[in-house]
Design a protein around this nucleic acid. Structure first.
Lengths: 277, 277
DNA sequence: GCGTCGTTGCGTACAAAGTACGCATCCGGG
DNA sequence: CCCGGATGCGTACTTTGTACGCAACGACGC
């Protein structure tokens, strides 16, 4: 008796091909389904060859996504929007990225390469951490949308670029006679502070896009009239600080001042342990 | 000549009522539209009276929203989901909250009242800030979803509950002979650190819900086999810290240690300025 | 009691967004 | 010339927020 061949995808009985090789699928659709299933379990990217233009590539898609996110925020990033940017159909993107989530992950990795890591060893641990802090600060200035995807040192291994960033900052302690676990605690405090400030930076950027605080500078210049923070009634301490000249909008200055404080805290702990910087 | 009356909403010509008072609207729909417009420019809430059950109230809606967000995260919070929770129609909610955004804002305000502010003055500034930090920490443990809506001290006036929180922490410096602007810088550093750690806490909670790191404890117990962080190759410093006993998953301990460092940094600055704590 | 308005509940409907599915097409090899 | 690998993309379904308008209930003046 002859063996009954079945479609490799849907399993239905399959009559042999008229001539040539034996058939594998009962229809073009079944072939496509099998191809998709194979792709799904092999997340290997398309090899990125080709002319670099006109043809769709992961790289081109990611770049277009970054352009949209930089200009209009992560909320405005939709697959249709990216496709429009590239002049292709929406679903074409899915041949190169597995999902929108996948796309954003790729975008973060690409965006983090925009600000290079330092390639020389730091003069001392303080210099190393300052350098690392300003590298991240610059990064969040350029691409505020990466923050929600970024985790701190302790979760860095979800992303190669992030882990490299952490490792680079970590190397600031290299020369010191310091317990690795202590160094890790310092890293944790340091990274948490930087990310905390970044959260404000990003919130401001988002709010400004929606012009919720459009008159922020204007209000300050015009004697900050209606701002409840400046009214001594409800929040006297905050109001007093505002009137004493504290500028909550000068994030760069605040970032620098807080960073100095955090590093002072590390220095105090080092001194307490008898380690000389 | 008699005055032609017009519908107050659509403006169409309006024949006078058969008897009784003169009509205002040409139809029930026009009346409803006018009512909606009036409500839109008067964001006053419904007075919250009534029996407290069965009848729809802002309070009940907000409570239901908090239950959903606590259990399933902010992503799972949809108007339909809240309505289902309350056994009402989706659109009924919009009689009480202006939008989903409005609902979430109300939810944050309500959730922040869950952990009470301290009512006694702190023993000293360090004690005051520690108390404030653990208050927030507890808050983020209970309601991780509030973080994206929370801004730091500097932006606190967007929310009464947040401003009260900041003001309470700010009062830690009350006795000291300290420039208000300096105190504000300390507050900024302090609050940024707390929020930075909260970001990790929230990320972990979210990831755990999606069981992306379901085996996190298991991996550690089983000799942390496949975790790239533990491989000395790519990230030697991080790997060394892990093997030296640093536990990146013990957030409570890390939070406490980093907080001590931040407060040390403030103490160092106070000493430098000749202010005795 | 009847008509009108203020107010509330809610069904219908529409506009975005992610994406599963399958067709059409081009390419390379037998 | 046929088949499978690979790519582009139109169609369609789902899930979301929410605009709109109808129906109903209670209060109040006639």
């Amino acid at each position: 008796m002859s063996v009954q061949l079945a479609c490799a995808s849907c399993g239905r009985v399959l009559e042999p091909a008229d001539r040539g090789r034996p058939r594998l699928y009962c229809s073009r659709a079944c072939q496509a389904r099998a191809y998709r299933a194979r792709r799904a379990e092999t997340p290997a990217r398309v090899p990125e060859s080709d002319d670099g233009a006109r043809h769709l590539t992961v790289e081109r898609i990611v770049r277009a996504g970054i352009v949209v996110a930089d200009a209009e925020g992560l909320d405005a990033l939709s697959m249709r929007r990216v496709a429009m940017e590239l002049g292709t159909g929406t679903m074409s993107l899915y041949r190169h990225v597995a999902s929108k989530d996948d796309l954003v992950t790729l975008m973060v990795e690409a965006a983090m390469a925009d600000v290079p890591l330092p390639d020389s060893p730091p003069r001392n641990w303080r210099h190393g951490l300052e350098r690392a802090a300003y590298r991240d600060w610059e990064l969040y200035h350029r691409h505020p949308w990466i923050l929600p995807r970024v985790m701190v040192t302790t979760r860095a291994y979800f992303s190669p670029a992030l882990a490299a960033d952490s490792e680079s900052a970590f190397s600031s302690f290299d020369g010191l006679d310091l317990e690795p676990a202590d160094a890790f605690r310092y890293m944790f405090m340091f990274a948490s502070y930087v990310q905390g400030v970044a959260l404000i930076l990003v919130s401001d950027a988002e709010a400004e896009r929606q012009s919720k605080i459009a008159a922020k500078q204007g209000a300050k210049a015009s004697g900050h009239a209606q701002d409840p923070l400046y009214e001594p009634g409800a929040y006297p301490r905050l109001a007093r600080a505002m009137r004493a000249g504290a500028d909550p909008w000068d994030l760069d200055a605040l970032f620098a001042s807080g960073l100095a404080g955090v590093l002072d805290g590390i220095a105090a702990d080092l001194t307490r342990r008898g380690i000389d910087a």
